[in-house]
Amino acid sequence: MSDLLNTLPPDPIYDRREKIRAITAKTLRRRTRLSQLFVGAISTTLVIALVPLVLVLYTIVQRGGSDLTLAFVTKLPQVPTIGQQNAIGGIGNAIVGTLIVAAMAAAMAIPLSLILGLYLVEMNTRLARIFRGGVEILSGIPSILLGVFAYIFIVIPQHHFSAFAASVALALLMTPVITKAVETAIRGVPDAVTEAGLALGARRSVVARRVVLPAARPGIITGTLLALARAMGETAPLLLIIGATDSSTWDLNPFHSMSALPTLTYFYSNSSFPSQHRAAWGVALVLVVLVLILNVTSRLISARLSRRAQA
């Protein structure tokens, strides 16, 4: 029997395997060490990526935290004078201004995005695909250009800066983001749900309004909150169109210029009063808190969603 085995020709595959095993054994240690080095290097990049987040948040809290008093967030700004260099008053009107502008932008962008999202899902035509491309390109257009557009389109005809013009620019900024979220959320609704609605004899519009959109609601809310957070912190277009960043009145007419947190931060950081430099950190802190509340809420909703989807 063993004679028979010895007379067989050598197995080429077995030989090669042995050879490979010998080579790998020789290089194993080197490869392991290189691999550990590489994994160590990319792990370092993760740490590097998180450093700025920690530094920025720490600096804002450290330098702006002491400003965070009730008076600061509710009172009107006070222009420093030679005698009273440290009196800066509050930023109440800027907080309210930011909220008003964001609310007006959301009031325009949300309904529009719902309809545009439905359009993109419902229409499977070439026109719809071109339209989707247009919306995507808009989402990559720098916000300053939307500011230029609102300036030409609204500020020039009306002859003055306005919160309304700012909200139009922000609405244009939010619409592509929310539309994309609406489209993705609707596509995530199981077909069976849609079909059940249609099978009951409901019209398409009724199915869309009463079945599809409610089923897609969590995804839509997530996307909307993210877009709103982004719009609230947006500074560049406001610099062009909201006007009077140093406004110190409670004038809340949307067709007048208005104070807002991002522009106020910018204005204070450029100011010639040291007290306003310091106050810029307080304004930035309030702005970041507002934005992070929206952002984290949105993330919590989407995390709960994906957990439910897994279960």
């Binding site: 700025p52 987040l53 530094l55 920025v56 912190g233 500074t235 950081s269 992070l292 952002n295």
Partner: peptide, 20 residues
């Protein structure tokens, strides 16, 4: 956490850049 970097408004980065 990495994506939170995108949430911080650009004027805040500007402020941080300018003074820190």
């Amino acid at each position: 956490m990495v994506e939170l970097l995108a949430a911080i408004p650009s004027v805040v980065y500007g402020l941080w850049g300018l003074y820190v």
